[in-house]
Design a protein around this nucleic acid. Sequence first.
DNA 1: CGCGACTTTGACAGATGTCAAGGCTTGTGG
DNA 2: CCACAAGCCTTGACATCTGTCAAAGTCGCG
Lengths: 256, 256
Amino acid sequence: MILLKQSSPFDVFLDKLTGRSVLGDAECHAILGLPGRPVQVRTNRDFVRLGEQVEHASLVVEGLVGCFGQNRDGARQITAIHIDGDMVNLNSVVAPGATSALQALTVSTVIQVPHAALHEMALRYPAIAEAFWRETVADAAILADWTVNVGRRDARSRTAHLLCEMVCRYDRGDNANGASFHFPVTQTHLADMLALTSVHVNRTLKGLKEDRVVQVSAREITVLDWDRLVEIGDFDPAYLQIGRPGGERQQQRAVG
Amino acid sequence: MILLKQSSPFDVFLDKLTGRSVLGDAECHAILGLPGRPVQVRTNRDFVRLGEQVEHASLVVEGLVGCFGQNRDGARQITAIHIDGDMVNLNSVVAPGATSALQALTVSTVIQVPHAALHEMALRYPAIAEAFWRETVADAAILADWTVNVGRRDARSRTAHLLCEMVCRYDRGDNANGASFHFPVTQTHLADMLALTSVHVNRTLKGLKEDRVVQVSAREITVLDWDRLVEIGDFDPAYLQIGRPGGERQQQRAVG
DNA sequence: CGCGACTTTGACAGATGTCAAGGCTTGTGG
DNA sequence: CCACAAGCCTTGACATCTGTCAAAGTCGCG
């Protein structure tokens, strides 16, 4: 599968897909040829509301997007965070009634891809249908990990764990000492991800900074001591299922 | 789709599928004809271990099965619970490397269905591929709800919420006052689902019993005041996506 | 320069965890 | 049919983590 043109906004998405699934040329071309309408979303703006019937999935091209739930009192819980190249709500193709809200955490650009196109593609190319399903499974694995994180780790460990995850998802997992990534979220956002209060996030982050494990400046996070961060965060990247098509088992032929 | 024979152990599974997806006769027959090997699992026995490569999905016929994560100290967190008729790890068809352990909470009977059969069926019947994908999405929605529950509700509300969910999943949602269901889990199991300690589960349950909201006897849970339970639990069943094929939008033709 | 959003800090409150002991149920074997 | 053991439930006293409230400091932007 040698496709070198880096022009389509779907390139990064395709990369993520092929990181987990085996796709043939025909499928790759199809993905790259998907239709889509770019949309800018302002910070803290819901672009999908709870209960809404959506008609397109959204591919993040730039920015950060969160999946929000909340309790009766309005306390919010982020259940997933999506970075560029992630198709936020691919799941909506088969379940268009949104069960959680989607909000941009920063100014973001997303490409709205009509369900019809994705659905048709899944019907036509079983390998794509499978790849989409697999993406949903991977997202669910991350979600399960978040549940464990929120449920069974204390604030310090929980925070470190999240940072480890983001390092890996930003593909800085190797050579991680000194690795840094732009993570433009407020401490309130972090609190919503970690099920803490922003005050406590502040204290926790302070601790990690004082211990020279990470450095945070201008919303840029730098890992000073990766091994220590992994240990504090009780982190094992297996659940992220990054870069092993077919769960390192299937030798699926590339149909196409 | 008129299939009245209630002989196959896949009947309940098919019911759940058709509750969310539209399937034609051919697909229904195919599902009912799936191969499978019944297996008994003892209480507290892992039948899938973390990291294991599995080769079949497991359909719960009887009993209760939990999906477990844990932290470094061995504190456990249940991330999903499956009752009879649930295909526990349908997701393993496309991601055979287990990212969490599966354990029977009570003596359970599961039917092991080879991935090969499920995979082949998904390739042959796009509507089934889609239905399987949709089941994964529904499970993920429940998981997201659990994350919110664990992260943003206090012990009392969290417990009530879980009970509400189980009432609905056991299909006792209507006529819910007086509804009861067999839920043979220990308080330690409940603690692992709710991210509490068993001691605190005990105190919380005591409170709900004293307030005449629920009654618990011999592992049978009876709802005394459904409206109150819903209110305490801050519960809205929408996320369960029960009984509305296609997310109450798609008028999908039944292919077959 | 000043406003608004975000961060940082301290004092205190409250929810939940920890530890430990005793009571109850259930199943088993004599 | 009784006695015992094992697991489970229940309870109390106390510890600890995290939340709450409030104020001041900082940063970036118009």
